[in-house]
Computed example of a mutant assay.
Amino acid sequence: MSRYSGFKLLIVDDHAHNLFTLRTLIQTHMDVAILEAISGRDAIDLTLEHPDIDLIILDVQMPEMDGFQTASLLKLRKRTRDIPIIFLTAAFKSEEFQQRGYAVGAVDYLLKPIEDNQLINKISTYFRLIEKERDLNRRLEQLVAERTAELAKAHQSLANIIEYMGEALLVLNPEGEIKMVNPTACAMLDYSEQDLLGMAIGDVFEEEADEQAGAFMGTWLEALIRTGALRQIEARFIAKDGRRVPILFSRTAVKDGDGRITDIICIAKNMTGYTRLDDGEDEGHSAAQATQSVALPRS
């Protein structure tokens, strides 16, 4: 017989013959592990020794510590508060008794003398509920594990893109301090990642017009707040040794649900080796094309 094999049941009664009757009846119908306690104190001690108890059948009328007191103490402890308790009683049949039993955490109660089928059906009902709950928990754990693996894979994929992308990536906080960089940015600026983190963007960046050089967190930030993004501009990075590295630069604001900027994403393309064809440099271009500033690689 393997019905409910693996479950553990605690029966509590101060009369040894009642324990014997309960144990014999249950073992006739179920292959469960049974623990016995002859008092409320003994029951509490057993629950501490066996944290895997699944169900408690608890006699109400016991000396020193009755079933209500025992149940109350069990519900106070985190390790035992969720164990279902079925009360057994020969004396109390009133609604007041039932309410008191439920108030201290009982899930059900049975009257003595015990009707065999009723007892077995009650126990079976709670074991089936426990089985369903455990199956659900296992399924949820599996789904969480699968989702965690998917997120880890996506995170690794994103990390690889950031790691190997050809453009410099800098993420700033709203105050313009660098909070994240990719290897391309470190190589372009000749700083280590640790050196760059916490630096102000103004220390490594300047726009072409002198009057804009100090406005990184000024005029353009106002535009970011309004629109969330700015078009690419021509600017320069200031490398560690003071070299000016020409770049094509774009910046985008990341906002929270209230519209506040939380991060500023900056992407820079190294334009070293490229030269600009200004108006009139290429007479073969159309008038419309000649009015644009086009970056072409030097031959």
Results as ranks from 00 to 15, higher is better:
M1I: 10
G202N: 11
E222H: 06
F7R: 07
N270L: 02
A145S: 14
L9C: 05
T275S: 12
A149P: 04
E115Y: 08
R243A: 15
A187P: 00
S124H: 09
F68Q: 01
K240W: 01
D282H: 10
K93T: 13
V254E: 10
T24V: 05
S94Q: 03
R243H: 11
Y109R: 03
L140K: 05
K93Q: 14
G228K: 06
D241V: 03
Q99M: 07
K132V: 12
A209R: 12
D108S: 00
W220K: 09
D66V: 02
N18H: 04
I162K: 08
S94C: 03
T148Q: 13
S286V: 09
E175Y: 07
K179V: 15
F237W: 13
G280Q: 13
A145W: 01
A239I: 08
E208L: 13
E207N: 12
I85R: 04
A33N: 14
H285S: 07
S192H: 03
G6W: 02
V245F: 04
F68L: 14
G280E: 14
I11C: 08
T125D: 07
R100H: 08
V60R: 07
V245G: 07
A37C: 09
D13T: 04
A235R: 03
D14L: 06
E175M: 08
E222C: 01
I123P: 11
D241E: 05
D42A: 15
L111W: 00
T291R: 06
A90C: 08
F249L: 15
